[in-house]
Design a protein around this nucleic acid. Structure first.
Length: 570
DNA sequence: GCCGTTTTCGGCCCGACTGTTTTCAGTCG
């Protein structure tokens, strides 16, 4: 997302929050949130769209908001927004995310008790003054106090890759139980979002209470928070909260659809249902009082005239319109990949030998793994000098000749130097079967020119972790991503979808953009030991979020075909 | 504030639960 888009989206998000506290019309608030979300999802700079006079073509942006965008582009601020923000203190807006505390209560606390921030709020909770106000009471106050504790403890979301193995284990265990007919994770986890708040799992069962009891006594459970008839909630190792909902099979599909979200996707679906005189809830699709669907997700979608939409696409960014026409993309699937195209070995900073990688690759059902170790300048990561490079080439030939594992492809992750040249001379690059280039230094500067130049090198196949982001640690480096994508396409190069759990780079918004522009992709885990190769699943999830199809991802080719393809690129 | 095969005005997504009440407002997912 461009810097401008982010600034404007942030203002609209904040406006929605502020208007909520002020008590503005609910639908106006929804409109601002929708506009903010849509803007966050647009890869092109709003300035460009504005100049083309096409702001109002963006769904969710009409007369009022387009004028405000124009005002921001021309003057750097929005009068209406400043006016709204001046009405309420800065410190109370974040309080909206405290569980059990909503905009109405915040407004009352501000107006009647002068609460301006978290500190003030804690005071009026403690001294009993909030409890005395009409409509309030001790129980409400207690819940808010608990809410604040929860909020302060668990502000950050988990990275998908941190919780993925834990959740997969839970799912396997639940599925193994005879009273449980099916167990499926829902929510942002199922949509494969790169960060996840808490995890919702749904089970289909005729004995809901029993299923909840099974869940609450799983081996990984550290603490049981709630254990009722249809819902259970536990803290698992690593402070991961998992909620379980047990449902009868006849409403499993509608519940799964409902709890998978996203919220925006569901709101849109309900609008369509309503137009048709139908009603969707977690219990099913209803025509008047008659239930017409609910057992499977497929029939829920079908009942309102859509084909089933893969969970990773359910963000209301155009997938519903396509599903109405029956024209969804045929997404790359979790078992489509024939190999991993970015792995490190002991030669640089990985821990596995070449043979170990080959053997593990075969176990995973791969035809090949590309071993892309660091280049000579990357001293911090044990980059290979020219002698080591030669040695590695020989060893790869030997391992491949033995056929004990999958094939290894001789690769290198070559540093892009500050001037845009590469960290091996061309006559060496020429000998390497798969050359990916990446930036590992100089994050503060604008890296566009440097990357564009590197992409002109005839021996480079692809660009690795293009934005350089590290989730929860740093934003990507400054980069004109549109220019980079254009260059990749123009030079017939590949873009990496780096599946390492902290990277997931490129990510959904830009993947879609790059696909639209005709780019091709490879997926690599950037694994540094064999225990990280499973992360390919995170990469495929992200690919699906970016609407990539099998034909867009070269890892779907077999060994010979992929080698041929790489040769054809030079 | 957005939007349009019942509409340029009058709609805009649904149900459960909780806590405060005695018919409902607020919060959540």
């Amino acid at each position: 997302m461009s810097k401008l888009n982010k600034e404007i989206a942030d203002i609209f998000f904040k406006m929605a929050d502020a208007l909520e506290i002020i008590g503005e019309n609910q639908f106006k608030i929804i409109a601002y949130r929708k506009a903010a979300r849509v803007i966050s999802d647009i890869p092109e700079d709003l300035r460009k769209i504005y100049k083309e006079g096409k702001l109002k073509d963006i769904p969710g942006i009409g007369e009022g908001i387009s004028k405000k965008i124009q005002e921001y582009i021309e003057t750097g601020s929005i009068k209406k927004a400043e006016e709204v923000f001046s009405k309420i203190p800065e410190g109370i807006i974040p309080l909206l995310s405290v569980p059990s505390l909503g905009p109405r209560t915040i407004a009352v606390a501000y107006q009647k008790l002068g609460v301006k921030n978290l500190k003030d709020l804690k005071k009026v909770l403690k001294d009993g003054s909030l409890a005395k106000l009409p409509g309030m009471g001790q129980k409400k106050v207690d819940n808010i106090i608990k809410g604040i504790e929860l909020w302060q403890k668990g502000k950050e979301r988990f990275l998908l890759g941190e919780i993925y193995p834990v959740v997969e284990d839970i799912i396997q265990e639940l599925r193994g139980h005879k009273k449980i007919m099916d167990a499926v994770p829902a929510g942002s986890y199922r949509r494969m979002k790169e960060t996840v708040g808490d995890v919702d799992i749904l089970v289909a069962t005729k004995e809901t209470k029993k299923a909840i009891d099974v869940f609450c006594s799983l081996k990984g459970v550290e603490r049981v928070l709630a254990q009722g008839e249809t819902k259970g909630s536990c803290i698992f190792e690593g402070d991961i909260q998992v909620d379980l909902r047990a449902l009868p099979p006849e409403s499993f599909g509608s519940a799964l659809q409902y709890f998978t979200g996203s919220k925006a996707h569901n709101v849109h679906l309900r609008g369509i249902a309503k137009q048709k005189g139908l009603k969707i809830s977690e219990y099913g699709v209803f025509k008047k009082d008659k239930k017409i669907a609910g057992e499977t997700e497929e029939e829920v979608y079908k009942s309102i005239g859509l084909i089933w939409i893969p969970p990773e696409m359910r963000e209301d960014t155009g997938e519903i319109e396509l599903a109405l026409e029956g024209k969804l993309p045929d997404l790359v699937d979790y078992d489509d990949l024939k190999g991993d195209l970015h792995v490190h070995s002991k030669y640089s900073d990985g821990s596995a030998t070449l043979e170990e990688l080959a053997i593990q690759g075969r176990k995973m059902g791969y035809e090949y793994i590309a071993v892309c170790d660091h280049s000579q300048g990357a001293k911090y990561a044990g980059g290979l000098d020219l002698d080591e490079l030669k040695k590695k080439m020989d060893e790869i030939k030997k391992v491949n000749a033995k056929r004990t594992g999958c094939y290894l492809i001789m690769g290198a992750e070559v540093d892009i130097l500050p001037d845009g040249s590469l960290d091996y001379p061309d006559e060496i690059l020429k000998e390497i079967d798969f050359v990916v280039a990446s930036v590992h230094t100089g994050f503060k500067k604008d890296n566009t020119e440097r990357i564009l130049k590197a992409l002109e090198n005839p021996y480079v196949h692809g660009l690795s972790h293009p934005t350089g982001r590290l989730l929860g640690q740093r934003e990507g480096y400054t980069l004109d991503i549109e220019a980079v994508i254009d260059k990749v396409v123009q030079e017939n190069k590949l873009i990496e979808l780096n599946a390492y759990y902290e990277r997931l780079d490129l990510y959904d918004v830009y993947l879609r953009r790059a696909k639209e522009k005709g780019a091709k992709f490879y997926i690599g885990t950037d694994a540094h030991h064999t225990g990280q190769l499973w992360m390919i699943k995170l990469g495929i999830g992200m690919a699906r979020r970016g609407w990539l199809e099998k034909k867009d991802v070269i890892n779907t080719m077999g060994y010979k075909q992929v080698l041929k393809f790489l040769k054809s690129q030079k």
